[in-house]
Amino acid sequence: MATLADYGPEARAEVKQVREVVATLHEQLVKWNLVVWTAGNVSQRLRTADLMVIKPSGLRYEYLTPSSMVVCDLDGNVVDGSESPSSDTASHAYIYRHMPDVYGVVHTHSTYATAWAATGQNIPCGLTMMGDEFGGPVPVGPFRLIGSEAIGEGVVETLREYPKSPAVLMQNHG
């Protein structure tokens, strides 16, 4: 199994930078009430190697640091980190493998998005700013169980139907 030492100096330098960014973005999730307890996460794909940085599983946000972030390959195998990666790692990795132009995934459980996702209906494009940002409605993807590639598959399938949207709500999830 590969370790971070197996990657070149550019990738190792980028990992350091991305760990800092991903840790800071998790602080923003809490600041803006987009997550509760440990539910939700951010990951970022590297530009210099087929690696991603993601939050460790079950670690509360207030304890996250750049060094606690986990580095995985795009199959979800841990390359560097002392913690287990998020239970959503396989889904994030699936998205990165199937959408090579995507370099970041944000998974939240904000109150309003989660409530709307429970309806199983797209958020209609009722404001010009929504049209500008999302290119139409915010789609709702299929319900999928956590802990595998299933959510990632649902996200990719949904974004193929709504290629202008940078967001997907997952039915009965968030």
Results as ranks from 00 to 15, higher is better:
Val21His: 14
Pro100His: 09
Gly76Ala: 12
Val106Gln: 11
Ser148Gln: 07
Gly154Phe: 07
Glu153His: 08
Gly135Asp: 02
Ile95Met: 07
His173Val: 11
Gly76Cys: 10
Gly141Ser: 05
Asp75Phe: 11
Asp80Ser: 09
Asp75Asn: 11
Ala49Asn: 12
Leu51Trp: 14
Val79Glu: 03
Phe143Arg: 04
Arg47His: 15
Met1Arg: 11
Arg19Trp: 13
Ser91Tyr: 11
Pro85Ala: 04
Val105Asp: 04
Ile146Ala: 08
Val105Leu: 09
Val18Arg: 01
Tyr103His: 15
Leu127Asp: 10
Gln171Leu: 01
Ala113Leu: 12
Pro124Cys: 06
Ser67Asn: 10
Gln121Thr: 03
Val105Asn: 06
Val140Leu: 11
Ala117Asn: 09
Leu29Asn: 12
Ser87Thr: 08
Asn33Val: 10
Thr111Gly: 09
Ala2Arg: 14
Asp132Pro: 00
Val155Met: 08
Leu159Glu: 07
Pro124Asn: 07
Pro137Leu: 13
Gln17Asn: 12
Thr3Ala: 10
Ala150Lys: 04
His107Thr: 01
Glu149His: 08
Thr128Ala: 06
Trp32Val: 08
Ser110Asn: 15
Leu159Ser: 06
Ala23Phe: 14
Val168Ser: 05
Leu74Thr: 00
Thr24Lys: 14
Asn33Gln: 14
Pro139His: 05
Val168Tyr: 05
Pro56Ala: 01
His26Lys: 07
Pro56Val: 03
Glu157Tyr: 05
Asn172Thr: 03
Glu133Tyr: 08
Gly136Trp: 00
Val140Glu: 12
Ser86Trp: 12
Pro139Thr: 01
His26Asp: 03
Ser84Gly: 00
Leu29Pro: 10
Gly126Met: 14
Gly136Ala: 02
Ser110Val: 14
Phe134Leu: 02
Glu62Asn: 13
Val35Arg: 09
Ala113Pro: 09
Thr128Gly: 01
Ala13Arg: 15
Ser91Arg: 06
Thr3Lys: 14
Arg60Phe: 12
Tyr96Asn: 01
Val79Phe: 09
Gly154Lys: 02
Ala39Cys: 13
Gly131Ile: 00
Leu169Ile: 06
Val15Pro: 00
Pro85His: 06
Ser57His: 12
Pro166Leu: 09
Ser57Val: 02
Pro66Ser: 02
Val71Asp: 07
Leu74Ile: 02
Glu27Trp: 10
Leu34Trp: 13
Gly135Cys: 03
Thr108Met: 08
Val18Glu: 01
Val102Tyr: 13
Met69Ala: 01
Gln171Thr: 00
Asp80Met: 06
Ala115Ile: 10
Arg160Ala: 15
Glu14Asp: 13
Trp116Asp: 05
Arg12Phe: 14
Ile123Cys: 05
Pro137Glu: 15
Asp88Thr: 08
Thr119Glu: 11
Phe134Met: 03
Gly104Val: 00
